[in-house]
Design a protein around this nucleic acid. Structure first.
Lengths: 204, 204
DNA sequence: GTCAAGTAGATTGTCGACAATCCACCGGTA
DNA sequence: TACCGGTGGATTGTCGACAATCTACTTGAC
């Protein structure tokens, strides 16, 4: 499901640890809304549900804490993160800063990932058609922005992006209505791409 | 041996968890150079040395992983992070991006933390006098930049700063010679402060 | 001598159990 | 009734033990 879809089949890739599987399961449950904001994450309950012990659940929860999906209170445990309006603004503003810097860097770098960005806009239009749920659309959108940070030539932009990617997804899913017209959303990405191609830093 | 014998006041405040204590101990050992780059962090050895079990050590190591001080390889364990020249450049460039954005935000916010910044420059000069080791100077320097990110009005700048603060300290300690003349270092911070006071975004 | 397979030791990954801590409920008292 | 301390249940924090995995060494064949 990740961006590493160019595998040649030699690597089994089953080496994914239990912790990562638990983390993905939990993050999906949170982003999809199955676990609601403020809800407590009982280590024992989750461990029983997933058929493991508490140790992997605990480590997975710590991973999700870094991703901003859950908060941790000493001696009280983990809770699904809830966002105030101010936190939403702060997250959005921070994303702008990071991605703007990434775009500038990408332009200076020559825009290696432009073809991938074009392709991703096509994907955005495709998932805008009826029959695709919102989560799919959100992930396609995120992938576009991920490609920008990925092509910036400084892995830290991608790392920072990944760090806030999940909570960004979560907030978008919470707000939801931004995606009323997915086709229009796809169109809003075109000027960014054109600015990159033209090498215009300010336009982006 | 351990520093558990300090509290004489009313507030015990000893409520700091074991994990945090282990994490601080390890981070100090790494930043100070006691543990060298590439060295393996054996969970059992550290646990025995600190008189705990492996569980807190493991959690502490995960915390340090987020701070970029150690790397983790599945089924192999934790290692003290080592930096390539490119990674150093990337870290430095990223810091510029973050702090520049923070300064802009701080100026727009009215520069509430300007007095604290002034005071911190005095501190920088004080620790530049003989008798203070480099680690103290580095931490005073970091504190100046921390205040900038703190005053930006968006907690995410501070959070991101904290996330890369320890590895920044580590890289500075590794390079070392940047601090040949600590007084000159202190002076380099003055123009930044003046730009903030003047409200000049580009100068910063 | 070189290389490969096998093996022993050490380290991490996971587990179940116990101790420490928190939280909600309950009963007494003014 | 309102307030306060005690108490029981539930949850997290830590621990020691075992299983899975990796690493380094030995052994043997070519």
């Amino acid at each position: 499901m990740d961006a590493d879809s160019d595998a040649d089949g030699l690597e089994p890739l089953d080496r994914e640890g239990l912790v990562q599987r638990v983390a993905r399961r939990l993050s999906k449950a949170i982003v999809s809304g199955q676990l609601r904001a403020g809800e407590r994450l009982s280590e024992s309950v989750i461990a029983r549900q997933l058929g493991t012990s508490r140790a992997p659940v605990r480590e997975a929860a710590r991973l999700l804490e870094n991703s901003g999906l859950v908060t941790y209170q000493p001696n009280r445990g983990f809770f699904v993160r809830s966002f105030t309006a101010a936190e939403l603004d702060n997250l959005y503003e921070f994303r702008i800063v990071i991605e703007l810097a990434a775009v500038r860097r990408l332009i200076r770098e020559g825009g290696r990932t432009v073809p991938a960005l074009c392709a991703q806009i096509d994907v955005l239009h495709r998932v805008a058609e009826p029959g695709h749920d919102m989560l799919t659309q959100v992930e396609a959108d995120m992938q576009f922005h991920r490609l920008i940070c990925d092509g910036a030539g400084n892995p830290r932009f991608l790392a920072t992006f990944e760090q806030i990617a999940l909570e960004t997804e979560l907030t978008i899913m919470l707000i939801g209505k931004l995606y009323d017209d997915a086709h229009r959303l796809a169109e809003t990405h075109v000027p960014i791409l054109e600015a990159i191609q033209a090498g215009d830093e300010t336009a982006a």
